[in-house]
């Protein structure tokens, strides 16, 4: 009998259901959705590749590219925490479902600083 009260109350209150696909969901700013790279500050240091627990991130120094396998990333944010240049961040929007495994490859315009040529020591 106690349940009647609950049932009646839900009859007159607004629906608990989020009208999801019709109204888009707003996320909290801190939600871990997917990883975003700020290309301009990345130095291809490979720390994110080493730290990633699932091996989703690949850094290609020769080809100057940073790539992430979206279907391997577990959104733990360990790469974000360990990035020394703070160029990785979490975006609240999740990766949308797909029919094949997506790999995002970003070109990084970073130029490694040219090493100064060693001052030639005059032969003794």
């Amino acid at each position: 009998m106690k349940m009647t009260y609950v049932a009646l109350k839900s009859l007159f209150s607004s629906p608990a259901t989020a009208n999801y696909p019709a109204e888009p969901k707003t996320y909290y700013p801190g939600t871990r959705g997917h990883i975003v790279l700020e290309v301009s500050t990345c130095t291809l240091c490979k720390i994110c590749e080493i730290r990633c627990p699932t091996g989703a991130i690949q850094v290609d120094r020769e080809g100057k590219a940073w790539s992430i396998e979206r279907m391997k990333c577990i959104q733990c944010g360990f790469c974000v925490d360990s990035c020394p240049r703070k160029c990785l961040s979490n975006d609240p929007q999740y990766t949308s479902p797909a029919s094949e495994k997506i790999t995002d490859r970003l070109d990084v315009p970073y130029e490694p600083p040219k090493r100064k040529p060693k001052p030639e020591t005059p032969p003794a």
Partner: peptide, 12 residues
């Protein structure tokens, strides 16, 4: 939970 940690079931 999601607001404070960023995850729904895996808090991280």
């Amino acid at each position: 939970v999601e607001e404070t940690t960023g995850g729904r079931v895996i808090f991280g």
